[in-house]
Nucleic acid binder design. Structure first.
Lengths: 153, 153
DNA sequence: CTGCATATTGAGAATGGTATTCAATATCAC
DNA sequence: GTGATATTGAATACCATTCTCAATATGCAG
């Protein structure tokens, strides 16, 4: 049987002398099930449906906790809101962000990573982390734009 | 004679029906002379030395204005503060950011840009802009760290 | 050069996301 | 179960950014 996210969390918590509360378990479950980039606010709204008593601060703090536990990644794109991404087993990846509809696509490119290391070495720089984001229009928003142009709106 | 930043600004302003005020001219001059990434706060402190009456809101608004006029670039790194960079003639570039001392190095890599386009095409994505930041330790901070480890502090 | 319409300024206050405080409560080792 | 202590939820603090508004500066028309 595979290790569940909840096991991972429980382990981390007991290792740190922290407690596995009802709220933390619920938040993790809902966060993992959502399977997309969520802000604290968005997750809070989801959590409230199932567990109405849960406070915003708890959701907020739990997201930080999950990040420390390695179960989530913090992402700050250009709109000033911090989003969290559930970290399944998949590797590091970067993002394509549609400025039209806000959609977020993921990608991975080994060659780019290698070139980054190359750049770092040239500057005697030791890379701890990186972020690469491409902002633009997804295929859907490109068609919409073409249509608008054609119709002259 | 080369076109000066102030000319560029004046042109932009009159084109938009805006006014070339004392404050805007002073802010641009000081910003251009600083030649590094500055937050609104930092620039405000610099401007106050020469032109004490100038308000923070004006510095802030002028930085937005310079960005629209193409004389500045807005950068948001991971510390939550927006920084502005004077746009001289040099091309687009990306950043190495030292998590030890906050130092910012710049780099440019054509191959990475090409690979980004390749990734975009594969996803039928039309890139409008991108950001690539490498976070880590500059050579100075690496030595400091080694020293600390050696001394066991 | 003068007057006028209007863009701009500066101070302060509003905003909005993030982070903390604190008394009440839940957790868990014993 | 009991007690020490981590956690919760509500409210509040924080802080960069943005807006408001009355006073002022700008620049065009005449």
């Amino acid at each position: 049987m595979q290790k569940q996210p909840s096991d991972h969390l429980t382990e981390y918590l007991s290792g740190q002398g922290l407690k596995a509360t009802r709220q933390r378990q619920a938040i993790l479950r809902i966060f993992a099930a959502a399977g997309r980039h969520l802000s604290a606010e968005e997750l809070y709204l989801l959590v409230k449906k199932t567990a109405p008593g849960t406070g915003f601060a708890t959701v907020y703090r739990t997201l930080k906790l999950l990040t420390e536990a390695g179960l989530a990644d913090e992402r700050r794109f250009d709109d000033g809101v911090t989003r969290y991404e559930y970290r399944a087993s998949h590797d590091h990846h970067d993002h394509l962000i549609c400025t039209g509809c806000g959609r977020i696509l993921e990608f991975e490119n080994k060659q780019i990573e290698e070139l980054q290391q190359h750049v770092a070495r040239k500057n005697r720089f030791l890379v701890q982390s990186h972020r690469l984001e491409l902002y633009g229009l997804c295929s859907g928003c490109q068609s919409k734009k073409r249509k608008r142009v054609k119709e002259g709106t």
